[in-house]
Amino acid sequence: MRLTRGEKWFNLLNYVLLSAASLTCLLPLVNIGAVSLSSNEAILSGKVFLLPVELNVQAYSILFKGTPVLNAFGNSLILTAVGTAVSMLLTFLAAYPLSRPDFYNRRFFTLAIVFTMIFSSGVIPQYLLVKSLGLINSYWAIWLPAAISAYNMLIMKNHFENLPVELEEAARIDGASELRFIGKIVLPLSIPMLATLSLFYGVAMWNNFMSVLIYINDANKLNLSVLVQQMVRSQSLAQDFALRPEDIAQSTPEGVKSAGVMVMIIPLLLVYPFIQKYFVKGAMIGAIKG
């Protein structure tokens, strides 16, 4: 098919605009990476744009030696791993019974859960509850209150409802118990959906900021989000993080702050190629359901 001249211009413009939009997403990340790897003088004189100037890893060595970033990294990993497991377990416990047509009061229970989606209970009562349960400074304060996302639960429930009824009948005729049926048939048939939802929960946990900020006061228990936020906002890194004088002399705050942001971005960039397609699939499910 031959294109008219107008269509050629249209295509060219389309490619140019999309390239520009894509670069807008990429360049800030490249820039902050370059800043984190550049020398103090280069950063201060504004020479750093997309490539590191006078390449060095000083900012990173200060970051890892002088600040508790490694500890926070470990905390983020624990928060993400356990949080995802707790969330997936509870979400399954809610979604599976609700997906069974014979389950008692399933309509009432589903409505009661959907209601929590559209009417939030509020931060203050949540905080007072967590406090009265004695969970301040405990990671359970992060894992439990947000354990079930009603949205994810509905996706899972919908998936189970769409499994062929014949499977269950066949399993029952064969005398399989509920547990066996779930373990041998339901879960193996749901692996892509389970992976998608685990990633939804996992990324949300990795990026969790507000509940750690609210519920965790112990500096040793902070996750990367809160620590990096404190660093970015710090007027004086040296004071706030008790850096050694000889380290401060070698670095600009901008370099260290950029390095802190990079430490948060890099793990996401590493897993991004693998998780992107699951997320796109998940967003599509949402689109079809919505």
Binding site: L18, S19, A21, S22, L23, C25, L26, P28, L29, N31, I32, V35, I43, L44, G46, V203, W206, N207, F209, S225, V226, V228, Q229, V232, R233, T252, E254, K257, S258, G260, V261, M264, I265, L268, Y272, P273, I275, Q276, F279, V280
Partner: peptide, 29 residues
Amino acid sequence: TAQTLLYLPHFLSWVIVGGLVITLFAQES
């Protein structure tokens, strides 16, 4: 490629995006 790049910011937390904005648009540095 364009989709991969344009979907990427969705996965970054507001701490990162805020950090990017604040460092990129800071007045002196």
